[in-house]
Design a protein around this nucleic acid. Sequence first.
DNA 1: GTGTACATATCGCAT
DNA 2: ATGCGATGTGTACAC
Lengths: 226, 226
Amino acid sequence: MRLLIADCQVDYTGRLSAHLPKATRLIMVKADGSVSIHADDRAYKPLNWMSAPCTMRVSPGADDEISEVWEVSNTGGDLLRIQLFSVASDASYELGVDPGLEKDGVEAHLQVLLAANPQAFGVGWQLVQREYFTPIGPVDLLFRDDSGGYVAVEVKRRGEIDGVEQLTRYLELMNADPLLSPVRGVFAAQVIKPQARVLAGTRGIGCLLVDYDALRGLDNAEDRLF
Amino acid sequence: MRLLIADCQVDYTGRLSAHLPKATRLIMVKADGSVSIHADDRAYKPLNWMSAPCTMRVSPGADDEISEVWEVSNTGGDLLRIQLFSVASDASYELGVDPGLEKDGVEAHLQVLLAANPQAFGVGWQLVQREYFTPIGPVDLLFRDDSGGYVAVEVKRRGEIDGVEQLTRYLELMNADPLLSPVRGVFAAQVIKPQARVLAGTRGIGCLLVDYDALRGLDNAEDRLF
DNA sequence: GTGTACATATCGCAT
DNA sequence: ATGCGATGTGTACAC
């Protein structure tokens, strides 16, 4: 990883055109060839960047003020042009390959927990299949309720309007299948935004607020019992 | 901006739980207090981060190997815990406030260009309103076609399935209004994905591929003429 | 390679 | 504050 602190002017042309006037910034060149330019605020997003795979071409500056010009390009025709003025610092480091991030608590885990605990939906519910396949994609969970009717469940961490749309498309398709019809829908999420709840209501789709910690507790309790 | 190259172990608890095993990484502390941890690949995304506003608490390490422990927290209860082992480099720089990014070519510009050039849709089309308001949000463009019928247009840079869903919701609502009905829909984008085109077709929504450069050329030509 | 869904998305704007 | 849409979204995974 190479880190420069330098006065620079940057231009990007690609999916849009963007320009950074001359100022002091951090320029980061990573081992995969990617380049990013950071200001002294915002943790997450660089001002400008070029993702790998890309190639860099370095040329001398056109005048005394510009020491070098970097042109970073990819196969899609995007071009990041960095004009370097004075360089306050320029250092390189060997970091090696990162062992990587371990995560927990995402939607996949919610889905597994709900599949293992149908009682979260109601008494007598039984799981038919997880990731039940339809031509337009997999339904997260398919259950039969206590009366034997099919229920398609869409699981989200945060329930928003596009999740309701997604479930609606699945339901349209499944209800066109005489072997499945009628299929009800339930939208399950840790939080459900009001607009999503209203839209679900108008489409006859039920909503279930999922308590992740309680479900995980249930799961652990069962692990201990059996 | 403070830049450390150091062996570190990182834990994050907040909207999810995540763990980074001990390895050499870049740790960036910006003037706004935000902290990010970068591996030697991926230009855009840090491995872990805490956005401003947040506060850092530094304590000495529990044993000889750990030099310091940083705990960065925000008001939402998120916690980023960095255990520092050996530090290869530690430097601070004054960058000042960045003059900021200037952009061009985003969806807003497409919308303006299309509003100014109704002939891109067809002969005799007339703009009724840009950002035509409905209770569920603004329709990008509302036209009357050569026969006087209303046409709602959704503009995207890239036409995908969710854009068709969005336009569908607008059309449902507008067609429920006897003063507007019937309203046709047209989905306009620089590229339209096949699945979006098919969905639009099944809903009776037209598709228009927008040539950004040609439209801009038209616009410039008009600027010169008048 | 393309399509699809998720993200600690972030960011900006309008209510 | 909250909702909502756009992002050069990036990223992983399935087909």
